[in-house]
Design a protein around this nucleic acid. Structure first.
Lengths: 334, 334
DNA sequence: CAATAAAACGTAAACGTTTACCCTAAAGGT
DNA sequence: ACCTTTAGGGTAAACGTTTACGTTTTATTG
């Protein structure tokens, strides 16, 4: 058995209340007793028991984080940021990998509730009614990252997806492109799907380019789907001079496919991605992309959540600035 | 306040002991009372409090995982596997990002102890004496993944690094290469450094190829260092027909550098990596590499740890089989 | 039907803390 | 010298469970 506060009290010849007081450095003890207690603590190698502590003050100093897929580069960057701030604030983070599966998600939510986490970060997955209801019944703060919800009141941190791709397309146009194809993510995705194709269409429209549905093809954000989409584009819309993909993974899939077809990038076709994962710098040629600062977003989400936990007030939404990072996959048309 | 077991007891007109019994389905109650209790539970939306539970039975159903860098593809694949098994066994996992910093690591260890985790997975970082001592004083199971320690008794799961690169080099030799350069990871790393260059040297030796120190250059496992290393090789050992890198990231860095120098891969130079991260399939040409099944390793580590927690006996070491996955970066020399 | 065994259930202690409340003794004021 | 204040510190309840032990009720046996 590890020593408890009782052992410390005994060894220092004081009551456990006093030990507790010096531990939490409150007032109510002399300097001498403080010395004695600290001495006893050191000698016994005493460590407070956070569980007992948690039971009484109803705070576990733990937050839960839900990801559709922990091992994606996307999630893990976010996680890194979340963990950073959390640990600095003396919170632990427990991760849950939902696999985008409703049943699993509900089970994890259950688990987090039983474990009495102080707050939850919900990432990259839409917060539907079912989730929202249990979250609400848990009566703990929640923040969404890279996600939104129709149920107001739950703060999010994300970039403006619509605007980001609007800007990206405009960038492509400014480089002289007019025949621009898009590889969208999952069609029905209300955060990374719809708004992004909206941005695409509106940007085109704003430059007087008419939308051509044969240039819009859907993937599911994955590398493989990006490759397939590229094949489709090459088949159906071979005149396109540029393709914008709604994720870096898809963009890289598209890049591979293009290269495999003997096309040179960016000479024969320009490709632009979305996210700015580490991957983007690693491929050849390095990918031009729109950057979401994932690590920072994680940090901010974590910060908001912890503030909510500790102050009780409800956080505001935060739109994070995106930016275009120019590398070598888009060419200027002359 | 969320309802407690007491509320349930009251509503069902039984004692809390009885409620607890049906909750943990032990014996000692009739079917009717079981119904009553379950009814009350449902009506109140009662959820057990795992903290209180943890306090009394000294089990938190939580494991801690230490990574040098959570956001690396390497760690996150591991984490995925760990999380999978853990959650299936009703354990939660709390992540710690040590940044390879001793101070941080110690702080996290402290934290995990206070939080009373039931076990710890220690990943990709050597378990030095300092860490070992606190771990030992915590008296909870630990398993190492992709790591080792001099202090016996702590089980590990990893591939045989020496053998893996031995096989890789042999593979290269079987493809007709004799002038093989190597980009090693951190020189002093006792698990992913030294053994791997040993494998390289021995494999060369076994085929009667004399080791040439100008063909061995050191990086730090990162993409950038791979690029720099490749430059060095091109400068110092330009006759090399193949280069083996001790990580996929470095291999891809080397690939980029080679491509940038106008070399064709694999026509002008062959490149082989180590890890088989998702990245390896994404680059062009796709990387030939030696595969460590990270996800499975995570799962197995998790399984071992949980078995140790629940049975109390100490797990055995596990050497995971590696394999060579042939893609398109090595050419057969004729 | 009495005796006994077994089933059903309740009581209370325990887990390791925090904290409200109480007590004592010394210090300060008159 | 007496009263009041305050610093220092102790006692015990509380947090939400589990579980050993005891008690009552029911079923079983002869």
């Amino acid at each position: 058995m590890n020593p408890t506060i009782k052992d410390v009290a005994q060894k220092a010849n004081v009551s456990i209340a006093t030990v507790s007081r010096v531990l939490n450095n409150l007032t109510g003890y002399s300097d001498k007793t403080k010395q004695k207690v600290n001495q006893a603590i050191k000698e016994l190698g005493y460590q407070p028991n956070a569980i007992a502590r948690g039971l009484i003050n109803k705070r576990t100093q733990t937050i839960g984080v839900m990801f559709p897929n922990v091992s994606s580069a996307f999630s893990s960057d976010l996680l890194h940021g979340i963990d950073e701030f959390a640990h600095d604030s003396n919170y632990s983070v427990v991760v849950c990998n939902t696999d985008n599966d409703g049943k699993r998600t509900m089970k994890y939510l259950q688990l987090l509730r039983e474990k009495q986490v102080d707050g939850i970060i919900f990432s990259s997955e839409v917060l539907n009614k079912e989730y929202y209801e249990v979250l609400e019944s848990m009566k703990i703060p929640v923040v969404l990252v890279s996600s939104k919800t129709d149920f107001a009141k739950v703060p999010y941190v994300k970039v403006d997806d619509y605007q980001a791709v609007y800007d990206a397309i405009q960038y492509l146009i400014s480089k002289g492109h007019r025949k621009i194809a898009m590889i969208s993510g999952t069609k029905s995705d209300p955060i990374a799907g719809t708004p992004r194709v909206q941005g695409y269409r509106k940007a085109l429209e704003a430059s007087g380019i008419t939308f051509d549905s044969s240039r819009l093809v859907y993937g599911d954000f994955s590398f493989e789907s990006g490759g397939r989409a590229m094949e489709a584009i090459l088949r159906k819309a071979g005149e396109a001079t540029a393709v914008f993909a709604a994720s870096d993974e898809m963009a890289i899939g598209a890049l591979s496919a293009a290269l495999k077809h003997g096309l040179n990038v960016p000479e024969d076709i320009s490709i632009m991605g979305y996210d700015d994962l580490k991957l983007a710098q690693m491929v050849t040629p390095p990918l031009t992309t729109v950057r979401q600062p994932l690590y920072e977003m994680g940090k901010i989400a974590s910060e908001k959540l912890i503030r909510m936990i500790e102050t009780g007030d409800i956080a505001t939404n935060k739109i994070i600035a995106h930016s275009i990072v120019e590398r070598q996959t888009v060419r200027t048309l002359t």
